[in-house]
């Protein structure tokens, strides 16, 4: 009688299930994202007293209607007029933001939770709210082919509320900070608001990262942080 022998089992590296599992292997990058706090599932417990997240992205505004291009131009011109210096650069008024920044610095110097509670220092969340309310306003318009104001003078450690708009075509108001850049895309007529805090003094190039026409590569500004 002829015996039917079963075929030899295949090596696990040639099984369909293994191939599928290996194919989805790239999804494991999620673990790295989570380790950096850049995924919905966080591996570290969120620390409310931690320094503000450098990754940004905490909430945002509701979708209220912003100013149109003409109104924004006027606001920008008023901002420049109110804050310009003899050399043509613009230095926005600081308000209470510097006081809050100093308070937060003292808070971080105290690592003992009991000490912090005793001194009734505000939490980072409370500070963030106060910062939002007291951060000096900065207006920045992007146009073909430049930025208005062209040169801003800011203070290190102070949060500023940037109000930005491209007033003709899409631009990028991108900042060269440290070794890399921070890109902000501006669609024409859309107000973009962002709170920015420069942590180190220096001169930071502002440049356009969306092709906007013939002189796109001449479009530049500067932020001087003292």
């Amino acid at each position: 009688m002829k015996e039917h022998s079963s075929p030899p089992p295949s090596h696990f590296t040639t099984r369909r299930g293994f191939i599928v599992a290996a194919g989805f292997g790239v999804v494991s990058l999620y673990g790295l994202w989570a380790a950096y706090g850049a995924a919905p599932l966080r591996l570290k417990a969120h620390d409310e007293d931690a320094a503000p997240d450098h990754m940004g992205g905490h909430g945002g505004h509701g979708r209220a209607r912003g100013p149109d291009v003409d109104a924004f131009r006027r606001q920008t011109e008023e901002f420049i007029e109110a804050n310009k210096l003899p050399d043509g650069s613009v230095r926005p008024a600081r308000g209470n933001a510097a006081l809050l920044a100093a308070t937060e610095k003292a808070h971080h110097a105290l690592h003992d939770p009991e000490q912090r509670e005793k001194l009734a220092l505000p939490t980072a969340a409370q500070n963030a709210g106060k910062r939002a309310a007291n951060a000096p306003d900065v207006y920045l318009a992007a146009y073909q082919w430049g930025f208005l104001p062209a040169v801003l003078r800011l203070d290190a450690g102070v949060p500023y509320r940037f109000h930005m708009m491209a007033v003709d075509v899409t631009h990028g108001a991108s900042l060269r900070v440290g070794r890399g850049g921070h890109i902000i895309r501006l669609r024409a007529g859309t107000l973009v608001e962002r709170e920015l805090r420069f942590t180190r003094p220096g001169e930071y190039l502002v440049y356009c990262t969306i092709y906007c026409g013939m002189l796109h590569d001449r479009m530049q500004g500067k932020i001087i942080v003292a």
Binding site: P52, D53, H54, G56, G57, H58, G59, G60, H61, G62, A128, R131, A132, P159, L175, V177, G178, R179, G180, H182, R187, T190, L191, V192, E193, R194, E195, L196, R197, F198, T199, R200, G202
Partner: peptide, 10 residues
């Protein structure tokens, strides 16, 4: 980077 970007909206 010497920049903290907090909150965004359009």
């Amino acid at each position: 980077a010497p920049l903290a970007a907090i909150g965004s909206g359009a």
